[in-house]
Write a protein that binds this DNA or RNA. Structure first.
Lengths: 142, 142
DNA sequence: AATATATTGATATCGTGTATCACTAATCTC
DNA sequence: GAGATTAGTGATACACGATATCAATATATT
């Protein structure tokens, strides 16, 4: 059940936001797109030996700001990045292979709305991650 | 609306788990308990000048493992710690003053159960944080 | 009290990420 | 298309949270 991306490719995303199209950025975008699965920033640096670490991090940051990448945390808090497919969503992350799934659950939003009536103050954001052991990993463990 | 802790004090928690009762641990536990609000590990070190940084971090880790402390992340990912009051819960964190609230919403659990039927694999955990601007801060901003 | 072992704390190191800054390259203007 | 302008690059240093190491020390056990 792999949904096709509805978003423009990463480099176009950057272009649309008025950033210059540079070689390093093209390479970062390309590697992220061919990777597919979730990744750490350092792993990306590994795959981009010719590109400076700072540039890799900077590009990641721009893409996260643009909403094209999601930054998510593993149970221990270690950050990972993954391509965003749908607009507003949450993630399932396999704690064994780091495979990321997305879900959009209106119930989550409903929880937040009802919570809005209970909590004092104003809700300004939220974060939700669901940790799973994916089918593949379950199979391998059996 | 400050609910009284239903948990044993922190040092007892450590004792119950078979750890030795040392002076540094007693001091860490004491400072956390008198602090009340959420805190960063570094702030705790500040308040515990006689105790080694490593020991402070180690003790925090033990308490998190024991479920007596919660590690939570601010919107930018910066970690904070807060005393756990009820067994299984989520947090509201004020993005301005870091004040932490706890909520236990059965709806969240319901979402997870229904999600369990949708996602492939097995849910092994989750994380949810709700970011707010609390009443006090709203008042100060007006 | 002596022993075994858990804990400490100074220090080094790691992982993730940002600041600086001289240099380079992309875009703009003519 | 050449030159000017400005954004972007990358090497380096640094910040921050946290853990590894390891000799010295304190706690629990006998």
């Amino acid at each position: 059940m792999t949904s096709a991306p509805i978003r423009p490719d990463l480099i176009t995303t950057l272009e649309d936001r008025g950033y210059r199209l540079t070689d390093p950025r093209r390479r970062v975008a390309e590697v992220i797109e061919t990777r597919g699965e979730s990744f750490t920033a350092e792993a990306l640096c590994e795959d981009l030996k010719g590109v400076g670490r700072a540039t890799v991090y900077r590009t990641i940051k721009l893409l996260v700001e643009a909403g094209a990448l999601c930054k998510l945390s593993m149970p221990d808090g270690a950050p990972k990045y993954s391509l965003a497919r749908v607009e507003h969503h949450h993630h399932t992350v396999c704690v064994r292979c780091s495979k990321v799934g997305e879900f959009r659950d209106s119930t989550v939003e409903r929880v937040l709305r009802s919570l809005g009536r209970e909590v004092s103050g104003e809700i300004v954001g939220h974060r939700m991650e669901v940790y799973v052991t994916c089918e593949n990993c379950l199979a391998e463990l059996r």
